[in-house]
Amino acid sequence: MPSETPQAEVGPTGCPHRSGPHSAKGSLEKGSPEDKEAKEPLWIRPDAPSRCTWQLGRPASESPHHHTAPAKSPKILPDILKKIGDTPMVRINKIGKKFGLKCELLAKCEFFNAGGSVKDRISLRMIEDAERDGTLKPGDTIIEPTSGNTGIGLALAAAVRGYRCIIVMPEKMSSEKVDVLRALGAEIVRTPTNARFDSPESHVGVAWRLKNEIPNSHILDQYRNASNPLAHYDTTADEILQQCDGKLDMLVASVGTGGTITGIARKLKEKCPGCRIIGVDPEGSILAEPEELNQTEQTTYEVEGIGYDFIPTVLDRTVVDKWFKSNDEEAFTFARMLIAQEGLLCGGSAGSTVAVAVKAAQELQEGQRCVVILPDSVRNYMTKFLSDRWMLQKGFLKEEDLTEKKPWWWHLRVQELGLSAPLTVLPTITCGHTIEILREKGFDQAPVVDEAGVILGMVTLGNMLSSLLAGKVQPSDQVGKVIYKQFKQIRLTDTLGRLSHILEMDHFALVV
């Protein structure tokens, strides 16, 4: 994948999101292997301009796509893939009243899908469409860049269908997702969380590099694949309309690839034109409109599966009536509230959605109805927002919020430890010299600072030695090549209790 991002070429006709291997024109390309080798690009942008032909009021008969309808489940399912879809609609009884809503608040519980998330729908649909058009064949390999849930859905379907599955996901995604993927037989590649989507090191860039190296491999490409919004247009939206008897006044959905909100909203605009569509985008993402909503100094966020630093091709923002931004604290607070007060075992993005819903639905009156999409299960986040310690460490809970008995030293300040200034190293000294210094002084790690004293990161003896043994660096290389740029900081005025929580999850903390 090139470091400079080429513009994806656009073909003359058809839909841009065809499933299957992508040609340089962004659509299915038939021909000899030699032709494909000559024409197939190194990668295709996940934010390529959409060429979708959908228009409100256009006859369904003019759609270029294969459409399906929700099917009634048999008493005995032939395999677990038949437990994807037909998820329950559940009334939220307490939270709406707590925040003064007059309307009825309903939750579409997508964590009841077989793999635990709304992404099971698009995973199965992308595979079925690729099999139907002859792209996927027995023994082929599926590769997908994902925040985890699409990966789980694909790995689940691949396990049943017999495909090899490789999932490329950023490091910030939970260990629970990784464990589930491994249990399903998927191979996992992790990428830096802070890598831009168009960087060769991003999950998108690495996935395309693997595709170019592995024979008979395919990126189904949830960011561009029409099967993504079509899955929701054909099934999720129809289920909502049936469950609500066609009567709903507002739908609120958090947005990642945009397939969920695009597919549902398009069908609702056709069948229930008075329904307002509300999009939820986390602070630090750029999906919301108008652009002024996205202006923030924050560039990272903890909530998973929603928000991006690019506009995915499948996201149709014209069908969203209003956007709201959400933050991590309210997302996790509301997710825990949904679990504790409503018994809905949902993930953090569901918290984002409901946090926005109780604001947006203030305009609705008694007798009206708001539906929220709860995308995934708490299963993926047992060591994250479900953990009091994690919430404390991230600053989303305060010590006084917890009532468990603490040891005698818990409320003492870090400054009472009488710490001395640490050994520091410059980023320009060599790895070999740094190892000598650390061994001589008896230290395992040291902060790396520039000549102005600005902290650049941390270097550890173990990481340097393993990097040297693996051949990633040489003793003569500058130590700046092996620094940890993500590390926890703590102030002298913070409590030892807070430091204790940090050290339970990290090997060190830097006192500043």
Rank of each mutant, 00 (worst) to 15 (best):
Q7A: 10
A8T: 11
A8Q: 10
E9F: 08
G11L: 09
G11P: 03
T13I: 09
C15R: 05
P16T: 05
P16D: 05
H17Y: 13
H17T: 11
R18S: 12
R18N: 10
H22G: 06
S23W: 14
K25E: 12
S27W: 15
S27Y: 08
L28V: 14
L28F: 13
S32N: 04
S32Q: 11
P33V: 14
E34C: 06
E34D: 12
D35K: 05
D35P: 10
D35N: 15
A38H: 10
W43S: 06
D47F: 02
D47P: 05
P49C: 12
P49N: 08
R51A: 08
R51W: 06
C52K: 02
Q55S: 12
L56E: 10
R58H: 13
R58I: 09
E62P: 11
S63W: 01
T68P: 14
A69Q: 10
S73R: 12
I76A: 06
L77N: 09
L77T: 03
D79P: 03
D79F: 06
L81A: 05
K82P: 09
I84R: 07
I84W: 07
G85R: 14
G85V: 10
T87K: 06
G96E: 10
G96F: 03
F99N: 09
G100K: 08
C103T: 02
C103H: 03
E104C: 11
L106D: 03
A107W: 02
G115D: 07
I122G: 00
M126I: 11
I127G: 01
E128Y: 00
T135V: 08
P138L: 13
D140H: 04
D140V: 08
T141S: 14
I142H: 00
I143M: 06
I143C: 01
E144A: 01
S147A: 07
G148N: 03
N149T: 01
T150I: 04
T150M: 04
I152T: 05
I152S: 04
L154E: 02
A157I: 06
A157E: 06
V160D: 02
V160M: 09
C165L: 07
I166S: 08
I167F: 08
E171M: 05
E176Q: 14
K177Q: 04
K177G: 00
L181I: 06
R182M: 04
A183C: 14
A183Q: 11
L184A: 02
A186W: 00
E187C: 11
E187K: 10
I188K: 05
I188V: 09
V189A: 14
V189T: 10
P192C: 08
T193M: 09
N194G: 02
N194H: 13
A195G: 03
S199R: 07
P200M: 15
E201A: 03
S202I: 05
V204F: 09
G205M: 02
W208V: 09
R209N: 09
R209G: 09
R209T: 01
L210C: 06
I214A: 05
S217L: 02
I219P: 00
L220H: 00
L220Y: 03
Q222P: 01
A226L: 04
A226Y: 09
N228I: 01
N228A: 04
P229N: 05
H232G: 02
T236K: 07
E239N: 07
E239W: 05
I240P: 00
Q242V: 11
Q243H: 08
C244N: 03
K247Y: 06
L248F: 14
D249A: 12
M250D: 00
L251Q: 03
A253V: 11
A253H: 08
V255K: 02
G256Y: 00
G256L: 00
G256M: 00
T257C: 03
T257N: 02
T257I: 00
G258V: 00
G258P: 00
G259A: 05
G259W: 00
I261A: 12
I261G: 03
I261Y: 04
T262I: 04
I264A: 03
A265I: 07
R266G: 06
L268C: 02
E270L: 10
P273H: 08
P273I: 06
G274L: 08
C275T: 02
R276P: 10
